[in-house]
């Protein structure tokens, strides 16, 4: 093997983002879709300002706050998980990952409570009005990403528990972490846009 083809330990090539390059292509595609969603929400709102402002008040901002804090905290836990494996401490890596998944679970439970209130108690659906169409589409699309992220982080935790990752090889941990941060990143724009800005 020549010097140019020798394996580079994960996270040491300064020209490559952390994790598998394929996940970054996927992340960029997902971010592109959410960007279109956000722009569509904002430009549709232009013609329905009063409707959007009125029904925005029906949303549970406290639940959204809890969910924002849960996602930020889970992202922080994932950062610590990556740090732990880089320090060759798989046991701590597993613990941080499980803590991150538990924060994801908080998000899911709170969001389901929110949906129960809107769908069952208020009888809202996609055709109720334009605001709720965007609210349901945007938040549910993001909700599915949270579920997928939790599955990915759980799988990474299982692999870490089995000793598949080390300080030298932990691309899988960084790949899962990058996806989870993307889920957090999208919510950081979604929360103020849908729940606060008016």
């Amino acid at each position: 093997m020549t010097a140019s083809t020798q394996a580079i330990p994960a996270g040491t090539d300064p020209r490559r983002p952390p994790g598998d390059l394929a996940i970054w292509i996927f992340i960029l595609a997902e971010l592109g879709v959410f960007a279109v969603f956000f722009a569509a929400y904002a430009f549709t709102r232009m013609n329905h300002v009063e409707l959007f402002n009125q029904y925005q008040q029906h949303l549970d901002r406290r639940a959204a706050l809890i969910n924002t804090l849960a996602l930020i905290t889970s992202s922080y836990f994932v950062v610590r998980a990556v740090a732990a494996i880089r320090e060759d401490n798989p046991r701590h890596c597993v613990n941080w990952l499980l803590a991150a998944v538990s924060m994801g679970l908080v998000f899911v439970v709170v969001k389901l409570g929110e949906y129960h209130h809107h769908f069952v108690v208020e009888g809202v659906n996609l055709s109720t009005n334009t605001f709720y169409m965007f609210y349901i589409s945007l938040t549910f699309f993001h909700f599915m990403h949270v579920i997928m992220g939790m599955v990915i982080l759980s799988a990474v935790a299982v692999m870490a528990k089995k000793g598949k990752y080390s300080a030298r090889e932990h691309t899988g941990v960084e790949t899962g972490a990058s996806y989870w941060h993307m889920v957090d990143l999208v919510w950081l724009i979604l929360f103020p846009l849908v729940y606060v800005m008016r």
Partner: peptide, 25 residues
């Protein structure tokens, strides 16, 4: 909105680790 964009950049730069990456990425 500006606050949200700053938060997003903090996540990208520090949490995702893109602050250490050189070039296009």
């Amino acid at each position: 909105l500006l606050l949200a964009l700053i938060k997003g950049e903090l996540v990208g730069y520090y949490f995702m680790g893109l602050g250490r990456v050189k070039g296009l990425w």
